[in-house]
Design a binder for these strands. Structure first.
Lengths: 256, 256
DNA sequence: AAGTGGTCTAGACCACGCC
DNA sequence: GCGTGGTCTAGACCACTTT
């Protein structure tokens, strides 16, 4: 009689520190959070379905969902569209002052980075790009779109623009590896200055689809412009991150 | 007959670029967003009430709210508990590598900073604090709680810890001003190094109340440890920001 | 085909801000 | 005391993922 009970919550579900009112969404939230913290729900694990979570609580599905949204905003869980809710892995720590690329700093934290090339082509500079690169509108630029993973979970999509005058035939190289690497080894270009901006944003259609997220979910936009020793723009990168995948850490000496 | 129509939306409401399906929450979202961008809803303005937004659309209140939550996550609007929804002011730009305090960088961006002292006292070091300051557990530390405003909107609450051995009688000074300033002018302490961490978080009861927000809303946690020339911890600061009030910008030269 | 989340409706009552 | 948002119920149907 230990047969599967597909429509019930798992057996351990009631092992809570109890004392939470699971008719209220914050109570439901606390109860799920407790299961995450005590290890019943491990990192990456799939939560019981929303309808399963209802059973026994007398709560409406809307109440359960309110709790799940809450946990999502806190970064504890995330969802795969129409598949389920999962426990979030810990965020990667990003230090904008250290200039190593994604591949190195993810690996340095014991995680597994992966890059997937989505698209690489030559485009005509838009007004905005023309300003950034100091070229005429319509001038040719390389545009590279990539998706990057940590431990096989897609965490960001990026669009990189590069000036072909600095890096002729760039697109012929392997772009699913560290671009920093390619620039250094094939073009002897070293980045000496970075301008970085980060702000919360909403993921639009394109990014959301690429990350397999629901369009409109909050994300983090990281904009980076890299310059070489001559002050030329080497790389203009727009990264759209899942909001729960990144944590910023900076260690700086104050000039003075 | 231009009397107030308290249960209707404002007259300009229908001047949309239309073509949005306002029975769906993303349509409602787009329509409100359009009003914000075209200036019908100015910065700081109060939106029509949820029930007013329903009128004429045939949408349920839940649908309207879904749209409002969406805009909130994107940082376009915020709410005051049980008072209403408001258009967010632009975020302040924070550059962790420049070491001026809150008062200076807010003012430098043409906004009006304000600091309010909530509490200042001597406490016994907890285990965590003892590690940070390299003192014994139970050793005395100053604890300062402040709330800070931009243009009269509360944007963060912070808890600062300071070692009294470095700054004896600190609590007797005016703590509603720049602490950086006080440390420099009264104790000749200069910060030469900062360690900063930032991560999304949920605002707990205390912080939420202090910011007049709903408990559990997403926020941004900024943790800062400042060191003097001798490597001593000068200040340990935990700041809880409204998630929409801050944007990060860094400009760095790469050492090498 | 079954199960999941995604969305929506149409009510209801409550706690609190504001006047 | 009125209006606001805050919460909740109890359905329903859809679009997609998964098996």
């Amino acid at each position: 009689m230990t047969a599967k009970k597909p429509l019930d919550r798992p057996d351990w579900w009631m092992d809570l520190p109890d004392a939470v009112d699971s008719r209220h969404y914050l109570g439901v939230r606390d109860s799920i959070a407790a299961h995450i913290h005590n290890g019943n729900l491990a990192e990456g694990a799939c939560l019981p379905s929303e309808r399963q979570l209802q059973t026994g609580t007398g709560a409406a599905r809307g109440t359960i969902r309110a709790a799940l949204f809450q946990l999502e905003a806190e970064g504890l869980i995330y969802r795969k569209e129409r598949s389920g809710w999962y426990v979030s892995p810990p965020p990667i720590v990003y230090d904008p002052t250290r200039w190593e690329g994604f591949m190195s700093y993810v690996a340095a934290q014991g995680r597994t980075p992966k890059t997937e090339l989505l698209d690489a082509r030559t485009i005509a500079a838009t007004a905005e790009l023309a300003v950034v690169f100091g070229v005429d509108m319509g001038a040719p630029l390389y545009e590279i779109r990539r998706r990057r993973y940590i431990d096989d979970r897609a965490v960001l999509v990026e669009t990189i623009h590069v000036d072909p005058r600095l890096t002729p035939s760039l697109l012929e190289h392997d772009l699913s590896q560290s671009l920093t690497q390619v620039l250094r080894s094939h073009y002897s270009i070293a980045v000496v200055r970075n301008r970085i901006e980060m702000a919360p944003c909403a993921l639009t259609q394109d990014e959301a689809v690429a990350l397999r997220l629901k369009s409109g979910l909050p994300g983090l936009l990281v904009k980076r412009i890299s310059y070489d020793a001559q002050g030329r723009v080497v790389e203009y990168d727009l990264e759209y991150w899942r909001h729960d995948a990144l944590k910023i850490s900076v260690d700086i000496r104050v000039g003075n």
